[in-house]
Design a binder for these strands. Structure first.
Lengths: 234, 234
DNA sequence: CGTCTGGTTGATCTAGATCAACAGGAGTGG
DNA sequence: CCACTCCTGTTGATCTAGATCAACCAGACG
């Protein structure tokens, strides 16, 4: 699993987005010496729910999904990790086993950094700890919002919300195409993300088409009017 | 709102439970000089959703609920804060306005510590920052579990789960009474906590009584057999 | 006494799940 | 090349958990 590749953190274009952005050259060199690059294809796993945490993963390119499967096999997609995201920091910091499986959703270039290296970095750079604190606060806020949303709003609203979030991350506007983006996940996963069954995804899509709120062409999504969609979410 | 009372952090029996447990005497004296004690009755508010965050609250006694109300007035109880909990740390650390209203659910003794004081403490004691990091990680984990649960399990299972959590916090076992605890919240709030409507709480209680899983007498809850309930949750 | 608020119950409605069928690729093997 | 099975997605028919609406009761409180 995972052919090798080589890249340096010092020149990594994603670094400015990550928790590592405050590291100085000597520390970055330390990371460079010890990190392992991996190229992974869709379906491959970074780690499995229950595995001991051996370090953290930095997503350089592609998309990683964190999936939680309960005893009955019901799986739920908890989080999407786009480039610039550090995956597995929670388990690393709280010294627990992985609580999810991390699965590659789109071909990825990730860097693995072993836990002892990260501990050294944390000891040297207080700014790194601070970054992780803020990352954790943001995650908690995010989750809180999702929780409230799932308890109080309809499937349609939640669906539109996720579409807007995805547009924000992956979308673009062109004069001919309008607002559009490529759905980065399967219908099943989209369901697992919103908390519904894939059939309901299909039906919701159909009704959104009828309302002309959103247009789908395969995995391509077109949003004629962002404002109108925003109003639906509230 | 809030008659005065006096107490010292140095002798506070809750301190060992809190993020402040590592503070040295000089720092504790600093807190003592600047904190404000408040005694609050059920229904009173610590702060309102949208208020600017002026500091944090330490719960010495009683119970505080964090409530989130959306634009349509739908309110959802996000978290219960029992004695030893620091309330409002998230907003303080991320320098945002309060995202919830904090309402007294049971008569409280809380201590307010202004943000400038907390910043001084954070600067002096790195251990404090570390404690907050772990608190945030735990909160995130908690929320994640709630999110997965609400998406994948039935009302009955979620209801039983919250009862077990409450038993863990507030419960006791006596040879005559068995496992029992006092419900710390109204049915409405219990609903807001689980994400259902109060009528459904009533119905669920009735069916649990019929199954003899749990017995209710007003706000007193009796659990004949913890194991059986555990099995139901899975 | 009335009025209010919190809780219980019943009757009904509905969003979304479940079950079942089917259509279009994408392999795979002859 | 066709025949086969997988796998993902769409659609239809049906079922059900839980919401909604409405009535009622009991205690609190003026």
């Amino acid at each position: 699993m995972g052919e090798h590749a080589h890249s340096s953190c010092i020149t990594c274009p994603r670094r400015e987005l990550t928790e590592w952005r405050d590291l100085e050259i000597p520390e970055l060199e330390l990371v460079d010496r010890h990190k392992r690059d991996k190229i992974l294809l869709p379906g491959e796993l970074l780690y499995n729910q229950g595995d001991p945490c051996e370090g953290i993963y930095c997503v350089k390119d592609g998309l990683i999904g964190e999936r939680n499967v309960d005893i009955d096999g019901r799986s739920s997609l908890v989080r999407l990790n786009h480039p610039g995201t550090t995956v597995g920091y929670q388990e690393f910091l709280s010294r627990t086993d992985y609580r999810h499986s991390a699965e590659v959703l789109q071909e990825c270039h990730v860097c693995f950094i072993g836990k002892s290296v990260v501990r050294q970095l944390l000891a040297k750079s207080p700014a790194l700890g601070e970054r992780f604190l803020h990352r954790s606060l943001e995650d908690a806020q995010q989750l809180e919002e999702s929780l409230v949303r799932v308890r109080t709003t309809s499937v349609k609203a939640r669906f539109l919300h996720t579409l807007m979030v995805m547009y924000e991350r992956f979308g673009s506007y062109g004069p001919t195409t309008g607002h559009t983006f490529e759905l980065p996940v399967s219908r099943k996963d989209l369901g697992a993300l919103i908390g519904i069954v894939p059939e309901t995804i299909s039906r919701t899509i159909r009704s959104l088409e009828q309302e002309a709120l959103v247009h789908f062409d395969g995995n391509r999504v077109f949003i004629p009017d962002l404002e109108v969609v925003f109003d639906e979410i509230v």
